[in-house]
Design a binder for these strands. Sequence first.
DNA 1: AAGACGAAAGTGGTTGA
DNA 2: TCAACAACTTTCGTCTT
Length: 289
Amino acid sequence: MVCDYELAEIVCQDCGIVIRSNMMDQGPEWRAFDSEQRERRARTGAPLTYTIHDKGLTTLIDWHNRDISGKGFEPGQKAQVYRLRKWHRRIRIFDAQERNLAHALSELSKIAETLNIPRNVLETASMVYRKAIKQKLIRGRSIRGMAAAAIYIACRQCKFTRTLEEVAEASGLSKKEVGRRYRFLVKELNYFIPPCTPRQYALRLIAQLAMEGEAEEIAQRILELASELRLTSGRGPAGVAAAATYIASVLTGERKTQREIAELARVTEVTIRNRYKSLIEHLNFTVYL
DNA sequence: AAGACGAAAGTGGTTGA
DNA sequence: TCAACAACTTTCGTCTT
């Protein structure tokens, strides 16, 4: 029995049967490497009451250099009020960022929950978001959009297969919007995101279809050969993976319909057909029989 | 009757002038 | 900014199991 953290599944290594899927990572929630991190994490834990910030009781130190009776300040007081104002301003910015972060963390965990994303990926997403806040990339953009993008980045970095479409759906945003935010963040934060491989998609598909271990092997082999023959470049990885999975299902005898696979892979049957046509054209399947 | 096939037109995003 | 373009989708009629 093996625990696959990428797919969040427990799989029997002999027969490939999925014993438990969509499980949660039960590892420690937060890790803190120094006191500063511990402090920050402690403050951001637990149920977030981001809707209650200051309840409208914000204090303002206005810019008139006058006291309550309208008289001007003594020189010493003037300097003091200036300092007060300065610090007040700083604290307010800090507040705003904290509030944004709190809101964002709640969005992040909401999205993560509907996508069954394990803790470590969620943690990565939070780190991405913090970085974005620090670099002032959030201001003027929607928190939810940026949160969705952070989630997607984290998924890609952790090799946890979730499509852009799924992330968009879970966040209630359009694919286009999440994609735009995603590209923006990747560019601004100088991330390198390795492209998604058909292999990752295929692994997930086979797990979702609860197929035998043999099918997984065959699909992997097909994709290996396909990439050697350059049949994968320029093609959508999901389509290639779906085709390989379909072929594997036919070869192992536990046949799945194109529609079934197409639905899970989020491509059409036609795409599966087109891909697998070019696959069987170039590959010699006697190897497996 | 369901699944598979494939032609043809349509779609949305990228690229390059 | 616009048109060409490639990958993919939609639609639909036909063939196969």
